[in-house]
C-alpha cells in the first residue's frame, strides 16, 4: 500500500517534471537542456517573492510561472532560434544556457538549507494505514489536472491544435499557414511554464538546491526517452513506469540508486525499443 501510494506520487512528480521537456521537444525538436535550470529558477523566484517581497503564496507562484514562461520565450527568441535545425549547436547552446543559469545561481549563494518553500497545506492524513502529507495528495491532484488540461488544450483550442500539427509534420503545418517559429516560441514558453509549475508543486517537499536542476533534467530526459521522445502520453506512462521502479529500488535497495534506475531505464529502452513506448519518430524518419 505504501509502495502504491508513494509510487503514484513519485510518478506524478516525474510526469510533471517531464511534460515540459516533452512538449518543447515534441514541437520544436529542440532538446531543451536548460529545462532543469528553468525549474530551479522558478523555485527561487517563488521564494524571493514569498520571503523577501512578502507577497502571498498564490501570487508568488503565479509570478514565478509567468516569469519562467517569459524566460523560456526569451531563451528561444534570442538564442535557440538562431541555431534551430543545427543539431550540434542546438544541444550545446541549450546546455550552455542551462549551465550558465545553474552555476550562476550557485555562485550567487543559493545553496544550503535556507531556501525552502512551505507546503501548501500542512498536516497529513492516513490512507489505508499509511500517513500521507496533504501536500503530496494535492500534488497528485495538480498533476492529474495539468495532464487533463494539457490534453484539453491540445485537442480543443486553436493554438493547441496548431502545436499538435507542428509536432506531427512541421512542413505540412507550415503549408497550412502555421508559423513554425511562433509555435516553437510558444512551445518553449509553455514548456518552461510547466517546468516552473512543477518546481512550485514539488520543491516544498525538499530544499531549493542547484543540484535539483541537474536531477530534474536527467529524470525528465529519462522519462521522455522511455516514453518515446516527443510523445506526451508516452511520457506520462513512462513516468509511472520509472516512478514505481524508483520507489521499489528505494524500498529494497536504498535511495542512492534512484539515478541509476533512470540511467538503466534509458539504456534498456535504447536497446529494446529505441523509439520508446509510444514513439513514432523513428518509423517516420525511416520512411525517407
Amino acid at each position: 500500500m505504501e509502495i502504491l501510494i508513494y509510487g503514484t506520487i513519485n510518478s506524478i512528480a516525474l510526469a510533471l517534471m517531464a511534460l515540459g521537456f516533452a512538449l518543447v521537444y515534441g514541437i520544436s525538436r529542440i532538446p531543451n537542456f536548460a529545462h532543469g535550470a528553468i525549474y530551479v529558477v522558478a523555485g527561487f523566484i517563488t521564494w524571493t517573492f514569498l520571503k523577501v517581497v512578502g507577497l502571498g503564496y498564490f501570487l508568488s507562484a503565479l509570478i514565478a510561472i509567468l516569469v519562467t514562461g517569459i524566460l523560456g520565450a526569451l531563451i528561444y527568441r534570442f538564442m535557440l532560434i538562431r541555431v534551430r535545425g543545427m543539431a550540434i549547436s542546438e544541444i550545446i547552446a541549450s546546455y550552455a544556457i542551462g549551465l550558465a543559469i545553474l552555476e550562476g545561481l550557485r555562485w550567487g549563494g543559493f545553496k544550503g538549507m535556507t531556501y525552502t518553500l512551505p507546503v501548501f497545506i500542512a498536516g497529513s492524513v492516513t490512507l489505508g494505514g499509511v500517513p500521507v502529507d496533504i501536500h503530496r495528495l494535492l500534488l497528485i491532484g495538480i498533476g492529474v489536472a495539468v495532464i487533463a488540461l494539457l490534453w484539453l488544450f491540445t485537442h480543443y483550442t486553436r493554438i493547441g491544435l496548431a502545436l499538435r500539427g507542428m509536432a506531427q509534420d512541421e512542413r505540412a503545418a507550415l503549408m497550412l499557414g502555421i508559423d513554425s517559429d511562433r509555435m516553437a516560441l510558444l512551445a518553449t514558453a509553455f514548456g518552461s511554464m510547466l517546468a516552473g509549475l512543477a518546481a512550485i508543486v514539488l520543491l516544498p517537499l525538499g530544499n531549493i538546491v542547484v543540484e535539483a536542476g541537474y536531477n530534474v533534467l536527467i529524470l525528465a530526459i529519462a522519462v521522455c526517452i522511455v516514453g518515446g521522445l516527443g510523445s506526451w502520453m508516452g511520457a506520462v506512462l513512462a513516468a509511472f513506469l520509472i516512478g514505481f521502479a524508483q520507489i521499489l529500488t528505494v524500498v529494497y535497495l536504498g535511495s542512492h540508486y534512484q539515478m541509476v534506475v533512470a540511467l538503466l531505464a534509458i539504456i534498456f529502452t535504447l536497446i529494446m525499443r529505441p523509439s520508446g513506448l509510444f514513439g513514432r519518430q523513428k518509423e517516420l524518419e525511416e520512411r525517407v
Binding site: A93, L99, E103
Partner: peptide, 12 residues
C-alpha cells in the same frame, strides 16, 4: 557559468 556564457555567445 562564465564558460557557458562564452560558449553560448560564440555558438549563437
Amino acid at each position: 557559468a562564465f564558460y557557458a556564457i562564452i560558449l553560448m555567445a560564440f555558438i549563437v
